[in-house]
Design a protein around this nucleic acid. Structure first.
Lengths: 152, 152
DNA sequence: ACATATTCTACCATTTTGGTAGACATTTAA
DNA sequence: TTAAATGTCTACCAAAATGGTAGAATATGT
């Protein structure tokens, strides 16, 4: 039931880009150093996020990445699915990589795994990056002035 | 977010043993053939379930495995943790393999992963093998007489 | 033209997953 | 008391997934 490093990095990068929404393109290098993510690895991640339509990119000098839509229209679930594939714990209850199991109509494990999937997606497909930004700011304010940086 | 084959097999074996609770020891070979689980693999699984106190075993001729407690006192969560380790998607929100992340107090990803963990354990730590048996029987009855066997 | 970005294709080491093999210890029944 | 049947233990193994890295190609602003 583990979140991969890839998805973890993707979430952090996405929050970073959400906090910089409408401020123009941000370069890989900036995200990678500020969030301490290996740059070459981050390149792959941002590339797949672009391919699924979550990010836009600009090549060349003054290039970079930015959100393709408003942060409140992108959920954590969408990002995690793009990198890790299905969120469902077994394929027979997955929306994006569905495969029937042997005795689907009477499989009781399937039933409970469906419950688990719904519990997870209930959180991840509801939470948007706008929500994450709000939480990040609130969390900063609570901490007071000593907090010059915060981890996303 | 995947359930390992090991845990999947473990759940099936546990349901099988729950349906045979108080009927004496069941042999590995019987579970392995009826549930189509590789026997040698199943041996390891049942062994670890014994070591965590979920199963009792008897060696020698007429030996076998049986539940160490009543099915309503064993949850799916306990079994999955025994085989796959932590259920939490990241270690910084795990009960059994907790490790702090870099900026715990202000980490917003941690917050949402805590929500995800609670959502998952809300299902898995509540559902017992007695519940699973009930579901299995109901599901059989609904299907009618044609159903001679059913997949657990 | 040149410096600075992203893009694309390939590779690679380590860990995890999903098993298998075989010797050993224990129990029962004949 | 001995043979057969069973769980126990240690070790091994191939394939896939994970977490990266390397380097050339392509696009863009000045």
């Amino acid at each position: 039931m583990k979140l991969s490093k890839k998805s973890d990095y993707a979430l952090r990068a996405m929050i970073f880009l959400s906090l910089n929404y409408k401020k123009g393109a941000v370069q890989i290098k900036e995200i990678s150093t500020k969030e301490r993510i290996p740059q070459k690895f981050l390149e792959n991640i941002l590339l797949t996020l672009r391919k699924v339509g979550v990010l836009n990119s600009k090549m060349g000098l003054k290039g970079g990445y930015e959100l393709a839509r408003s942060p409140d229209l992108i959920t954590l679930g969408e990002v995690i699915r793009a990198l890790d594939g299905a969120i469902a714990p077994v394929d027979c209850v997955s929306m994006i990589s569905y495969k029937p199991c042997s005795e689907e109509v009477t499989c009781v494990i399937r039933d409970v795994m469906m419950d688990v999937r719904n519990a997870i997606t209930g959180v991840l497909d509801t939470m948007t990056f706008a929500d994450m930004c709000k939480r990040a700011v609130e969390s900063l304010e609570k901490k007071g002035n000593e907090a010059l940086t915060y981890s996303i």
